[in-house]
């Protein structure tokens, strides 16, 4: 059937205008899609960051009395409390990295072996602690590391003839408790990271290696470890910034920002105490900015080492 020319023209004109409005809409639509992030980033990220930077140069005695004091807050960071916090946090980060990379890697390799039976159950068991809140974990570890002779840890040590210890009042003992708490909650997650990395390694690599006569340990060093480099780098990064921003674990073990002799005082703990308990907003902001710079340096180094900038540049 032939349409009268006017109708056909009209139709095609209609379609054209429809397509035109669609195009206009298609140009705007992407911005509407990403709008939630842009708004949230500006209001709840960029603005707070800028306001901390400004506050870090101020002395704030109340909403009305704000004085600009230049770098004085940063100069005040040179004090034994901050150095102690820096030292505690660095030690904590070091130990969590030392435990939470090799151990989950080894367990993931064990779980990835074809011959291992009951993988599913082991995986579930390892992962379960990750489901708990830090408060629940803290409740257990606080009382398991209690000072009485009867507590779990002290009675286990008793079996080996070691005297009971007041764990949470001793710098080394409390560091051990904090690292163990962190290990308990994050081991499973890191195992999953490594497992997903392991599953990405082509089986043929191992097959040809074993034909060449390489044993399992050689295969681990020459195939597994190099192939897992990106995952190891990733876990390393999250360990570093997780370690440096640690707060809740210590808060849960001593149920507050204060610990005897500041043995559990991390950088964020110090920030919390100065900002919220002592109302030293300017000084606390300087602590925050220092931590921010520290974390950013680590991130940039990680991105640089893993070749992120190279990829983008070329």
């Amino acid at each position: 059937m032939l349409e009268p020319p006017v109708v056909a023209l009209n139709k095609s004109y209609n379609r054209l205008s429809k397509i035109k409005t669609l195009f206009a809409c298609q140009k705007k639509a992407p911005y509407l899609f990403v709008l939630p992030f842009v708004v949230s980033f500006l209001v709840f990220f960029l603005y707070p960051i800028i306001s901390t930077v400004i506050m870090s140069f101020q002395r704030i005695d109340g909403p009305e009395s704000i004085t600009f004091i230049g770098l004085k807050n940063y100069k005040n960071l040179i004090n034994p409390h901050f150095f102690n916090a820096l030292w505690v946090t660095t030690r904590y980060t070091f130990w969590t990295m030392l435990v939470l990379i090799p151990l989950p890697l080894l367990l993931a390799v064990f779980l990835n072996k074809k011959t291992t039976i009951g993988k599913k159950y082991f995986k579930s068991a390892f992962f379960m602690p990750a489901l708990t809140s830090v408060i629940v974990a803290g409740l257990f570890f606080r009382l398991a590391f209690g000072e009485q002779e009867t507590t779990l840890v002290n009675s286990i040590l008793g079996v080996f003839g070691i005297k009971p210890m007041v764990w949470l009042q001793d710098p080394e003992g409390s560091m051990f408790a904090m690292v163990l708490l962190c290990t308990w909650r994050w081991l499973g997650v890191n195992i999953i990271y490594f497992l997903s990395g392991l599953q990405g390694i082509p089986v043929e690599l191992y097959e040809s290696a074993s034909i060449d006569g390489a044993n399992e340990i050689q295969q681990f060093w020459h195939i597994t470890l190099p192939s897992l480099k990106p995952v190891i780098m990733y876990v390393l990064t999250i360990s570093v910034y997780g370690g440096y921003s640690m707060f809740a674990e210590s808060f849960a073990l001593w149920s507050g920002p204060r610990s005897p002799g500041e043995i559990g005082m991390t950088i964020v703990n110090y920030l919390y105490q100065e900002g919220f308990n002592n109302n030293n907003l300017g000084f606390a902001s300087a602590i925050g900015i220092t931590l921010f710079v520290l974390v950013m340096i680590v991130n940039v180094i990680q991105l640089w080492v893993s070749g992120f900038f190279k990829k983008e540049g070329v």
Binding site: T237, F247, S285, V295
Partner: peptide, 14 residues
Amino acid sequence: MIPVEILILPLYKL
């Protein structure tokens, strides 16, 4: 890549 702990103080003010 940035831990929220850094933002708690200004976010509280906001």
